[in-house]
Design a protein around this nucleic acid. Structure first.
Length: 652
RNA sequence: GCUGGCAUAGCUCAGCUGGUAGAGCAGCUGAUUUGUAAUCAGCAGGUCGGGGGUUCGAGUCCCUCUGCCAGCUCCA
């Protein structure tokens, strides 16, 4: 009958088929197994239903549940199945949007006055499974706009009608499975029967179209799988992630504490957390000292005038703690950032081009009145310490300085095992320029410098518009927490604006005044957030050099307490953080408590160790490591810590 | 800030439809003198987050404040 078409596969091979062949048949022509696993088909740049006829030459790729695209299709179809279940259980429910997400899917719905409960979730899951057993096909249909509008008017789906306003006639498709029809671009899996296990994960509010001023819909999150085992593994993984939650570990390991009496979002650092934090701080201070940074200290408040000049006050008055006023009505502000103070240190005396760059570093604590709903453990707080530095340099030095900061940031990340980060170039929103200060030429220069520096450092970056600071674009380093939420840690920002606003200058070789460029940078971002993410990253099992307690000495009985104390003293003298557990308990009990505190090393000592000046070494999580002389244990421990800093023993 | 949920001993939690609080762990005391993840016994510990209300009676129902959780919005 028909003409033939040529399809090209990912490996570059080509085959010809009759025009109108479906993705499913293409898959079947390759192998029966592939046809069984297929969920959708990539046709050139698009992803299609397996049942949709292919009528022209194209590059094709069969997607299965081994591909992210496959899961996206599967979960999107699951969202439709959940919608169908909701429609059956709660007639009159109105639908917003229901996409697949990284793990699962959600659907935003308007249930009127009805509140959902946990029992409802189970009922919805059961209804989904009941519908799945009917194994209804997902049927695609192109629909004229007028017909689509008529359909949703009749149904009373005002949100769908609003979505239709933005769609062009001729591009509108409906998908129907069973009794449920949705406005949808697709694609979908062939039929509902493939969705065999469903779990609704949580209910939350979500503004319609992400707009704070519009109605809040009910967002139902869920996940589905074809196999029970996959669902169980997913739920187990979720549970494991909860075990790593820094808020839980922070309590168990006695790192930090929040008190409602002190206030929301104001962390209190407990002794062990303080050791961890100071160890990190010292690590970066030493590194910065080697790299030509100069330490400075500035007060926690500043005159309102300072922030009016910098531009922070008018731009961010909502997210500041309110100003304090004195008798003359001269206001002071609790500092929300350190940069304005640092400009005044730069400006304390005239600067020559010869001394630039000037790199002023401060672990500066700042306060921001974050919205109450944003606060979360250590990752979003109202008082936090930025490992801040401001580099004042000549325009011709910007790129090199920027590259050096990238080096430092990468060094910090790799020292702490963050090898899975995302580098993001945060640009201004070109459609909303009044949110930013400075002229286009400066912004372009800054953006260009960031792109070039990142490229020359071989960084793989993504660019996001609308994420810049109000004074300049930035390079942000993002890391995910245990639950997959992404946090910005390190940041490097180029700023042509504050130097201008504060009228900063240096004398050039031409004896003329020139404007310096400012680079704002913080490799950790904030100590609080960094430590929060670090705790989750290592599950509380800190590398030995960071662990608040490094060694616990465990005598097996009271007769060996004196020896345990002697060993402990030697360790302390050698510079390690060590303690002896002298309680009248069996060694099993002492081991258990040290293991639960995730102490890296436990040294069991009894008669034979005392006789031979040695210790029985036990490594956290790894068990008994055998007996070592005290001296050689100290040497091993030192070697481990040196290695963490990339040093050899003789350098240390 | 918004929607929904939650708040009981230091921690983790139990307490049915309202009848004036319980466990395990931790702590303290004593016994046990211990060899690689929990020795035994006893004791002590809570105005059930704060305030108000309904009721003969409130941990339990209602209002409000504070704090926490999920998501949304926000994030210099």
């Amino acid at each position: 009958m028909s003409a033939s078409i040529t399809l090209t596969f990912p490996d570059g091979s080509t085959r010809s088929y009759d025009s109108g062949i479906t993705g499913y048949d293409v898959a079947a022509s390759i192998s029966e197994g592939l046809a069984r696993m297929a969920v959708s088909v990539g046709v050139d740049e698009e992803t299609w239903d397996l049942s949709r006829p292919i009528e022209k030459d194209a590059e094709v790729r069969i997607f299965t549940l081994r591909d992210n695209e496959g899961w996206a299709t599967y979960w999107h179809s699951s969202a439709h199945l959940m919608a169908e279940a909701l429609q059956e259980l709660f007639p009159g429910v109105k639908f917003g949007i229901g996409p697949a997400i990284e793990k699962g899917f959600y659907y935003d719905v308007d249930l009127g006055d009805r509140q959902l409960t946990a029992a409802d979730l189970e009922a919805i899951e059961n209804k989904m499974m009941e519908l799945s057993r009917k194994d209804a096909a997902y049927e695609r249909r192109e629909v004229p706009k007028a017909e689509a509008i008529a359909y949703f008017k009749e149904k009373g789906d005002e949100y769908k009608l609003e979505l239709l306003e933005d769609l062009e006639d001729g591009s509108i498709t409906f998908y129907t499975q069973g009794d449920f029809t949705d406005l949808c671009r697709g694609p979908h899996i062939p039929s509902t029967g493939q969705i065999k296990f469903a779990k609704l994960l949580n209910i939350a509010g979500a503004y319609w179209r992400g707009d704070q001023d519009r109605k809040q819909l009910t967002r139902l999150y869920g996940i589905t799988f074809p196999k029970k085992k996959e669902l169980d593994e997913f739920l187990e993984m979720l549970e494991l992630a909860r075990q790593r939650d820094h808020r839980k570990l922070g309590k168990e390991l006695e790192l930090f504490h929040f008190s409602a009496k002190v206030g929301s979002g104001l962390p209190l650092w407990l002794p062990k957390g303080t050791i961890l934090r100071e160890t990190l701080t010292d690590f970066l201070k030493e590194e910065q000292m080697r790299r030509g940074y100069e330490p400075v200290i500035t007060p926690h408040i500043g005159r309102l005038e300072l922030y009016k000049t910098s531009g922070h006050y008018p731009y961010y008055s909502d997210s500041q703690f309110p100003p304090m006023m004195d008798d003359e009505e001269e206001g002071y502000l609790l500092k929300p950032m350190n940069c304005p103070h640092h400009t005044q240190i730069y400006d304390a005396r005239p600067r020559s081009y010869r001394e630039l760059p000037v790199r002023l570093a401060e672990f500066g604590t700042v306060y921001r009145y974050e919205q109450s709903g944003e606060l979360s453990g250590l990752t979003r707080v109202r008082g936090f310490t930025v490992d801040d530095a401001h580099i004042f340099c000549r325009p011709d030095q910007v790129k090199q300085e920027f590259k050096d900061v990238i080096d430092l940031t990468l060094m910090v990340f790799s020292s702490l095992g963050f090898d899975n980060f995302k580098a993001q170039v945060s640009l201004r929103d070109p459609s909303n320029k009044e949110k930013y200060v400075g002229d286009d030429a400066q912004w372009d220069a800054a953006e260009q410098a960031i792109r070039e520096a990142a490229a020359e450092k071989g960084l793989d970056t993504i660019e996001i518009e609308g994420e810049a600071a109000f004074y300049g674009p930035k390079l942000d380093f993002m890391v995910k927490d245990a639950l997959g939420r992404e946090w910005q840690l390190g940041t490097i920002q180029i700023d042509y604006n504050l130097p201008q606003r504060f009228d900063l200058w240096f004398t050039g070789s031409d004896d003329q005044k020139h404007r310096p460029v400012m680079i704002h940078r913080a490799p950790f971002g904030s100590l609080e957030r960094f430590i929060g993410v670090l705790i989750e990253h290592c599950g509380g099992n800190f590398p030995t050099w960071l662990s608040p307690l490094q060694v616990k000495v465990l005598p097996i009985g009271q007769d060996f307490n004196a020896y345990a104390e002697k060993v402990t003293k030697r360790l302390l003298k050698a510079g390690f953080r060590a303690e002896a557990d002298l309680r009248h308990e069996k060694v099993g009990y002492k081991i258990r408590s040290a293991e639960m505190q995730k102490t890296p090393y436990m040294l069991v000592v009894g008669q034979s160790e005392m006789d031979s000046d040695s210790v029985a070494v036990r490594r956290h999580g790894a068990g008994d490591q055998g007996v070592e002389k005290v001296e050689s244990f100290i040497a091993l421990l030192q070697a481990e810590i040196d290695a963490a800093f990339g040093r050899t023993a003789d350098e240390a």
